[in-house]
């Protein structure tokens, strides 16, 4: 028999070979462009400029940091993220808890409830867009039926922000629900049953036993949702026409798009991208910390 060490070394060599294709793709499609963005961000490249581009040091960064539109986009991004989480987390967790009871028909409901997260975001955005129509949309018609005066959803800042939050929530709640459902399946049943026998009601069991036990899972979900909210692009592109009305729903991601592909200020957009990476990194770090504990 061969000594164990040689098999392990053999295995390590094979493992190293098998990950080569992954490395090639990641380096070509991510590492190289990030370095490219860094390089571009120190130049003054714009599409269709007459003067040859040159290095301008930190000018793109100083201009960006002095630009009120940059700070507005950060505020918008934060608002969308915070409001989205406040809507999505309670609903997602609540639905998971109900599905966990395994009432008759749960299978069917679970299938129906995950459909929204799988649908093409661009098509979803379009669907909601005509439901949000002020005069002929079905949402304002239903609100009118309840005696409420529906807002001009896509015509003013806060209604438009809420419209984006609603569409984003519609697509992301199933994701939260599924993760929490998986987390619930992994919890021991004992403590909850003991508490019920001792006379605790369903709400007490949930808030004092289930929720604390789910803590780590919820934390990971929260982090993934924050990261995905910061990335949100397709829905805003469609629902509010790339961040409108005006710049009312222009997130940082949308600002990068509009700068780079609307105004063709390549270098300015690259600098914004680098700043965005710097902002995402702390969230990434927290996420890993949370994931290691879950």
């Amino acid at each position: 028999m061969k000594p164990k060490g040689s098999i392990e070394r053999q295995m390590a060599r094979l493992a190293e070979a098998l990950v080569v294709p992954s490395w090639v793709l990641i380096l070509a499609v991510f590492a190289l462009p990030i370095l490219g963005a860094l390089w571009l961000s120190f130049r003054n490249e714009t599409l269709g400029a007459f003067a040859p581009p040159k290095f301008i040091g930190f000018e793109n960064y100083t201009t960006t940091l002095a630009d009120p539109r940059f700070w507005e986009s950060i505020r918008t991004t934060i608002w969308l993220t915070v409001l989205g989480l406040l809507v999505q987390m309670p609903i997602g967790i609540g639905l998971a808890v109900i599905l966990e009871k395994n009432l008759r028909g749960t299978q069917v409901f679970r299938t129906i409830l995950i459909i929204p997260m799988l649908l093409t975001p661009v098509a979803v955005g379009l669907m909601w867009r005509f439901m949000f129509d002020t005069d002929l949309g079905v949402i304002n018609w239903a609100l009118a039926g309840l005696g409420l005066d529906g807002p001009n959803w896509l015509g003013a800042r806060w209604p438009a922000i809420w419209a984006v939050v609603i569409v984003d929530s519609w697509q992301s709640i199933p994701f939260i629900m599924l993760i929490v459902l998986a987390g619930l399946a992994g919890l021991p049943k004992g403590p909850a049953e003991a508490a019920t026998i001792d006379g605790a009601n369903a709400f007490q069991v949930f808030f004092y036993i289930t929720l604390p036990a789910l803590g780590p899972v919820i934390l990971v979900t929260l982090m993934i949702r924050i990261i995905d909210s910061l990335k949100m692009f397709d829905i805003i592109f469609i629902v509010t026409t790339k961040g409108g009305p005006g710049t009312a729903t222009q997130t940082l991601g949308m600002l990068i798009y509009n700068t780079g592909f609307g105004f063709f200020q390549t270098s300015r957009a690259a600098a914004l991208g680098i700043l965005m990476v710097l902002m995402v990194l702390p969230v990434y770090w927290l996420w890993r910390r949370a994931a290691e504990r879950a």
């Binding site: 992954s22 990641i26 991510f30 462009p33 963005a37 490249e45 780079g260 965005m276 995402v280």
Partner: peptide
């Protein structure tokens, strides 16, 4: 590799689109 994959997941793709367009 693990770290790179997580970063790929975390970094918004819009960031790499501008340089990818140029490239």
């Amino acid at each position: 590799l693990e770290i790179s994959m997580i970063l790929v997941r975390a970094i918004p793709a819009i960031v790499i689109m501008v340089p990818l367009f140029t490239i």
